[in-house]
């Protein structure tokens, strides 16, 4: 299949594992084995204790919207507009950048609860995105 136009992340030592988890339908968070601090985006060393030992925990995928923007112009191939981009504060305490799907632009707001779903492009590339969920 021809590659879909979305700009793909280059996969290196420090990030490939996260995208491999996403490909398996999981939202990963890096955890320092020295001091148990969670961190995102991933880095090879813990900025708290300088340990280079880490593993990954699977996030519940639940969080709330910290901030958002709605992109309308310019329109790049590989993305659907209006494109709602969100910062999500995950239950585990880390924050990540993602997309809000199944939502009209006038429905998005600060502090709304969201949950992770896996989006799959026509070429099979998978990435974690979010949709609104009802409050707990």
């Amino acid at each position: 299949m021809t590659e879909y136009a979305r700009i793909k992340p280059p996969l290196g030592h420090d990030n490939a594992w996260w995208w491999e988890m996403a490909d398996k339908g999981k939202l990963g968070i890096q955890r320092c084995l020295g001091c148990k601090t969670l961190r995102h985006p991933p880095r090879p060393m813990c900025g708290e204790c300088r340990s280079m030992e880490w593993d990954a925990v699977e996030s519940s995928g639940r969080g709330v919207i910290c901030s958002y923007t709605i992109l309308t112009h310019p329109k790049f191939p590989g993305y659907e507009y209006p494109l709602i981009i969100i910062l999500v504060d995950l239950e585990e305490g880390t924050r990540m950048t993602s997309q809000l799907v199944d939502c009209q632009p006038d429905e998005v707001d600060f502090d709304l609860p969201v949950e992770m779903v896996i989006h799959e492009d026509p070429d099979g590339f998978r990435l974690p995105v979010f949709r609104l969920r009802s409050a707990d």
Binding site: K8, P9, I85
Partner: peptide, 14 residues
């Protein structure tokens, strides 16, 4: 490049 990719993949390109 990895830094930018956390945003590019989601369409934050500029």
């Amino acid at each position: 490049i990895i830094h930018w990719s956390w945003y590019m993949a989601y369409g934050m390109l500029n």
